[in-house]
Simulated scan of single mutants.
Amino acid sequence: MRPTASAAMFVIAYCTTGYANDLPPKCNENGSAPEINACAQEEFIEADKKLNHQYKILISNLNSEDIALLRTEQRSWLKMRDPICREESKEYESTTGWIFWFNKCISAKTYHRTEELMRWRTE
């Protein structure tokens, strides 16, 4: 459930923007590319926190068989999310906007997964 792949991509993007020796750019939706990218990164971090919270609630209320099922499902989802978003943001790959579009995609997929987990709880 850790954002390792996307966090690594953020670090790579961050270090290649020329800000590596400065403070990280702050979110500014009307700012420079690094500032806009920071907004998308913050959105993903928030989405991931909500997903982790929902996952913990769900897993605490399941029997061992359902926990195993959920973990398998969650691992499969995680393995698919980033490659799908890399493909969806591929057209921006050589631009400074790539990390923005990638993070918007993983945020959307993470919010959607959180909703799925909420439905899992009510089934």
Results as ranks from 00 to 15, higher is better:
residue 80 M to E: 14
residue 80 M to N: 14
residue 80 M to D: 14
residue 80 M to Y: 12
residue 80 M to K: 13
residue 81 R to H: 09
residue 81 R to T: 08
residue 81 R to Q: 06
residue 82 D to E: 11
residue 82 D to I: 14
residue 82 D to W: 15
residue 82 D to P: 06
residue 82 D to H: 12
residue 82 D to Q: 14
residue 82 D to S: 12
residue 82 D to Y: 12
residue 83 P to E: 08
residue 83 P to V: 01
residue 83 P to A: 00
residue 83 P to I: 10
residue 83 P to H: 01
residue 83 P to D: 07
residue 83 P to W: 04
residue 84 I to P: 08
residue 84 I to H: 11
residue 84 I to A: 11
residue 85 C to S: 02
residue 85 C to A: 10
residue 85 C to Q: 02
residue 86 R to G: 12
residue 86 R to H: 14
residue 86 R to Y: 12
residue 87 E to H: 05
residue 87 E to G: 08
residue 87 E to P: 03
residue 87 E to V: 13
residue 87 E to L: 10
residue 87 E to F: 13
residue 88 E to D: 13
residue 88 E to N: 15
residue 88 E to Q: 04
residue 88 E to V: 09
residue 89 S to P: 05
residue 89 S to R: 09
residue 89 S to W: 02
residue 89 S to T: 00
residue 89 S to A: 03
residue 90 K to R: 06
residue 90 K to E: 09
residue 90 K to N: 06
residue 90 K to F: 05
residue 90 K to Q: 06
residue 91 E to H: 01
residue 91 E to M: 02
residue 91 E to A: 03
residue 91 E to W: 02
residue 92 Y to E: 05
residue 92 Y to C: 11
residue 92 Y to D: 11
residue 92 Y to L: 02
residue 92 Y to M: 15
residue 92 Y to T: 02
residue 92 Y to P: 03
residue 93 E to F: 04
residue 93 E to G: 10
residue 93 E to C: 00
residue 93 E to K: 04
residue 94 S to W: 00
residue 94 S to T: 14
residue 94 S to N: 13
residue 94 S to Y: 07
residue 94 S to E: 15
residue 94 S to C: 14
residue 94 S to V: 03
residue 95 T to E: 08
residue 95 T to R: 01
residue 95 T to C: 04
residue 95 T to I: 13
residue 96 T to K: 05
residue 97 G to Q: 13
residue 97 G to Y: 02
residue 97 G to H: 12
residue 97 G to T: 13
residue 97 G to L: 15
residue 97 G to N: 14
residue 98 W to S: 15
residue 98 W to L: 15
residue 98 W to K: 15
residue 98 W to Q: 15
residue 99 I to L: 07
residue 100 F to C: 14
residue 100 F to S: 09
residue 100 F to A: 10
residue 100 F to T: 12
residue 100 F to N: 03
residue 101 W to G: 04
residue 101 W to V: 02
residue 101 W to T: 11
residue 102 F to W: 15
residue 102 F to R: 04
residue 102 F to H: 01
residue 102 F to Q: 01
residue 103 N to H: 09
residue 103 N to W: 05
residue 103 N to G: 13
residue 103 N to V: 01
residue 103 N to M: 08
residue 104 K to A: 12
residue 104 K to P: 11
residue 105 C to Y: 00
residue 105 C to L: 00
residue 105 C to E: 00
residue 105 C to N: 06
residue 105 C to Q: 02
residue 105 C to G: 01
residue 106 I to G: 10
residue 106 I to H: 05
residue 106 I to C: 13
residue 106 I to P: 02
residue 106 I to L: 07
residue 107 S to P: 04
residue 107 S to Y: 10
residue 107 S to A: 12
residue 107 S to K: 07
residue 108 A to M: 04
residue 108 A to P: 01
residue 108 A to G: 10
residue 108 A to T: 06
residue 108 A to R: 01
residue 109 K to H: 00
residue 109 K to C: 01
residue 109 K to L: 02
residue 109 K to A: 01
residue 110 T to R: 01
residue 110 T to A: 04
residue 110 T to I: 04
residue 110 T to Q: 00
residue 110 T to M: 02
residue 110 T to C: 05
residue 110 T to E: 03
residue 110 T to Y: 02
residue 111 Y to A: 10
residue 111 Y to N: 09
residue 111 Y to W: 08
residue 111 Y to S: 06
residue 111 Y to H: 08
residue 112 H to N: 13
residue 112 H to W: 04
residue 112 H to Y: 07
residue 112 H to L: 11
residue 112 H to C: 04
residue 112 H to D: 06
residue 112 H to Q: 06
residue 112 H to T: 07
residue 112 H to A: 07
residue 113 R to G: 05
residue 113 R to T: 03
residue 113 R to Y: 07
